[in-house]
């Protein structure tokens, strides 16, 4: 029962935040954090647990957004069905891509995924007849359940964060299952894992496809929330930003992925007061975190816990 405590706490915080904040601007910014969190949580499985770097996740995010956006605006498919289609299409593509790419290692894998992301980005830009090219397209319909349209920020906030909570529950289960143990063994040593009879290739591809499909959901949410998409949202910078969120948050732990998305997703808003200097402060904050907390933000939480909780638990014994 105890292992459900963090998740329950998370749900309470997420439910309570809008009551405290009220302001639609903050809520809107938190919607983007939720969208990023979906990707970073699933990416942390690939990166932190399976130890496979992907610098191309913006491509899956983009394919999700474009599939959902195009199906609803061009062919007037219902948004939910379009979202489902985008998950299936992204899943198939991720499988086809992942099969050969995941055989690569380290920097080679990084370049290959970066390259694939670029190819998808070039496709969004160049297939003008299909995607409307670099200028993008708008008037994407909003999601709705029956008569309830996810029109204002607050409704979308609950939708996104509900999805995040479900995903977290799912991922926490995966981590503590057979698959989770297999993934960690790949991170440790792939050769050893193979020797122990773990079918590493199969697990790697499963988790890669899973995270791609979740990224597609995030993309679909983005498309239906902003109602306008253009290729720049899904370029290599976004891929790098997503990986940065995972690492800054702390990739040894899924909660780190949420923390990283929350910090780097809202940082541009905090930094507004710095005007032009925001880019310098942003870089400096990132550098300081990585230099002094190489384990990411969650490792800081770990330190605090050691200091306080550790002391507390020791006291009775003394």
């Amino acid at each position: 029962m105890k292992k459900h405590v963090p998740l329950a706490l998370f749900v309470v915080i997420v439910m309570g935040l809008p009551v405290l904040l009220k302001n639609p601007y903050y809520i809107g910014a938190l919607v983007f954090v939720g969208i990023y969190s979906l990707i970073t949580i699933s990416l942390s499985l690939v990166l932190g647990y399976a130890g496979q770097i992907s610098l191309g996740h913006a491509a899956f995010y983009g394919i999700g957004a474009y599939t959902s956006g195009l199906l609803t605006t061009r062919w007037h498919v219902s948004p939910w069905f379009a979202l489902a289609c985008s998950m299936v299409i992204t899943g198939i593509l991720a499988y086809a891509i992942g099969k050969p790419v995941l055989k690569l290692r380290g920097h080679y894998l990084a370049m290959a995924t970066l390259g694939l992301g670029e190819i998808v980005y070039i496709f969004f830009n160049s297939a003008v007849d299909l995607t409307a090219g670099p200028s993008g397209f708008g008037q994407i319909p909003r999601l709705a359940i029956g008569g309830l349209v996810f029109k204002d920020d607050i409704r979308f906030y609950y939708l996104v964060w509900f999805t995040v909570a479900v995903l977290l529950a799912l991922v926490l289960n995966i981590i503590n299952s057979r698959i989770g143990r297999a993934l960690r063994s790949i991170h440790g040593s792939e050769t050893a894992a193979n020797a122990m009879g773990v079918n590493t290739a199969s697990y790697k591809i499963q988790i890669f496809v899973f995270s791609a499909v979740i990224s597609a959901v995030a993309g679909g949410y983005y498309a239906h929330f902003v109602t306008f998409i253009s290729p720049t949202t899904f370029d290599a910078n976004t891929s790098i930003l997503l990986v940065t969120m995972v690492i800054v948050g702390g990739m040894s732990n899924v909660w780190g992925a949420v923390l990283g998305a929350a910090l780097l997703g809202t940082l541009p808003e905090y930094l507004r007061r710095f005007g032009d200097y925001d880019i310098l402060v942003y870089g400096a904050i990132m550098m300081v975190i990585m230099m002094f907390a190489p384990g990411g933000l969650v490792s800081l939480a770990g330190l605090v816990k050691q200091k306080f909780v550790g002391n507390l638990s020791r006291e009775p014994a003394a």
Partner: peptide, 19 residues
């Protein structure tokens, strides 16, 4: 400043309007 990132523009405009 939106840095040319569309998500930031959306946030910036909401800030201007509501805050």
């Amino acid at each position: 400043d939106d840095g040319g990132v569309e998500a930031n523009t959306v946030n910036a405009v909401k800030k201007l309007i509501t805050n």
